[in-house]
Amino acid sequence: MPIRTIVRLTPAKPKAGEGFKLTVLAQHPNEPGTRRDAQGNLIPANYINLVEVYFEGEKVAEARLGPSIATNPNYAFKFKAEKPGTYTVRLKDTSGDTGEAQVKLELA
């Protein structure tokens, strides 16, 4: 099942040369593998372990994550606005499921 992923920029339209934040929200339990259910059984680990950001097809940032990230995680990155283009965010979890979302950078 694809991981539901949302990306947004703040400010939405930065000026050329200005820094901006790229925020990713994902819908995922991020099971750490140490949590017990109501019957006391351990819920198997399944968490997002890779987040990649691409700009116009080129990889510009990569985060490798362990089992200690919160449920429904959000990640924030900072970039400098140089030219307009498209950011693509790709996620992958330990079960092999993936998520993808895009956002267009327009300059003010």
Partner: peptide
């Protein structure tokens, strides 16, 4: 598992934010 993340800011600013356990 003490190691929470490794972030490589290839062409990004050296900044990262995430919510952790």
């Amino acid at each position: 598992t003490p190691h929470i993340f490794a972030y490589m800011p290839i062409r990004a600013e050296p900044y990262f934010y995430v919510r952790i356990r």
